[in-house]
C-alpha cells in the first residue's frame, strides 16, 4: 500500500473503518478511500478497538518505523522492534494516552526512538555481562569488519537491500552516540524536518540542530577514517 506522509489528509469516509469479520477483503474503492482518511480519525477508531483502522495506520507508517529501527539498531532486529513499536502504540491508544497534542506520526516516531534506544541499552548491558555478540563487527585498525560467519537469518530481500554503502553507513552509525545517531537518522536518513525531529525528541530546535551538527561532523570523520573508498568523488 502506498505510504502517505501527510498527517492532515482530507477526511472522506471515516465510517469505512467499522471492523469487518476477521478483517476480510476490502474493495479497491474502500482501499483507496482509506488512504485519504486523516490519522486522527483512524486513531479515534483504533481507540474504539477497530482493528481495521489500526491496520491502516500500520500500513501507512510501518516502513518509516522500520527504517528508523534498522538505522538505529541494525536490520537484524528491525522487524521485531517495529512490531514492538506498533503494539506499544496500540496499547497506549487503548489507554487513551494519546491525546492528539502531537501528530500521530510524531508520536509514533517518539515511541520508535525510545524503543530503539532501550534496545541499544539492553544490548550494551548484555555485552557487559556476556561479552560481545558474534553478530557484531570486529573493530580492527582498519575499521569494523564483519565476522565471517554465515547468518542463516539473512533473507534474500535483505541481502539485495544491503549494498556495500548501506552496510558501511550502518556500521559508522553504530560508532556514534545515541543522541548523535538519533538526530542523524531522523533528519538525514529518514527525512524528518527539523521541527518534526525536535518534536519527536521533545527538545528545543536549537538543541536538535546542535546535536545534528555534532552528529554530522562525527559521522564524516568516522566515515572518512573507516570507509575512505566509499567517499563520494571530490570528497577527501
Amino acid at each position: 500500500m502506498h505510504i502517505r506522509e501527510a498527517d492532515n489528509e482530507t477526511i472522506k469516509h471515516p465510517q469505512v473503518f467499522v471492523e469487518k469479520n476477521g478483517g476480510g477483503e476490502q474493495s479497491s474503492a474502500e482501499a483507496s478511500t482509506e488512504q485519504d482518511v486523516d490519522d486522527s480519525v483512524l486513531v479515534k477508531a483504533a481507540q474504539q478497538g477497530e482493528a481495521e483502522a489500526f491496520g491502516v495506520l500500520v500500513d501507512r507508517y510501518h516502513r518509516q518505523i522500520y527504517g528508523l529501527a534498522a538505522r538505529m539498531c541494525g536490520p537484524a532486529e528491525a522487524d521485531d522492534i517495529t512490531q514492538d513499536v506498533f503494539l506499544k502504540a496500540l496499547d497506549a491508544l487503548r489507554r487513551f494516552q494519546f491525546h492528539g497534542e502531537a501528530g500521530f506520526r510524531t508520536w509514533l516516531y517518539r515511541i520508535g526512538v525510545n524503543t530503539a534506544i532501550n534496545e541499544l541499552r539492553q544490548r550494551k548491558r548484555s555485552r557487559q555481562i556476556m561479552g560481545p555478540s558474534l553478530d557484531e563487527p570486529v573493530l580492527t585498525d582498519d575499521g569494523p569488519v564483519q565476522r565471517q560467519l554465515s547468518d542463516i537469518t539473512e533473507e534474500p530481500y535483505r541481502l539485495t537491500a544491503q549494498n556495500e554503502l548501506q552496510q558501511a553507513v550502518n556500521e559508522v552509525l553504530e560508532m556514534l552516540t545515541e543522541k548523535q545517531r538519533t538526530a542523524l537518522v531522523m533528519i538525514d536518513l529518514q527525512g524528518l524536518t527539523y521541527e518534526d525531529a525536535a518534536e519527536v525528541l521533545n527538545c528545543p530546535l536549537g538543541t536538535l540542530k546542535s546535536r545534528l551538527v555534532r552528529a554530522r561532523e562525527a559521522f564524516a570523520e568516522k566515515f572518512r577514517e573507516h570507509e575512505p573508498q566509499l567517499i563520494p568523488d571530490g570528497t577527501t
Binding site: 500500520v58 516502513r63 528491525a78 506498533f86 537491500a161 570528497t235
Partner: peptide
C-alpha cells in the same frame, strides 16, 4: 556531497509480510 550521499540512500525495506504480522499481533 557527503550529506547528499546520505540523503540519496534508499530507504531500508522491511520484509513484505511485516505489516501483516503486525496487524495480526494487533488483532
Amino acid at each position: 556531497q557527503l550529506l547528499e550521499m546520505l540523503h540519496s540512500l534508499s530507504a531500508l525495506t522491511p520484509s513484505e509480510d511485516l505489516s501483516t504480522r503486525i496487524k495480526a499481533a494487533a488483532r
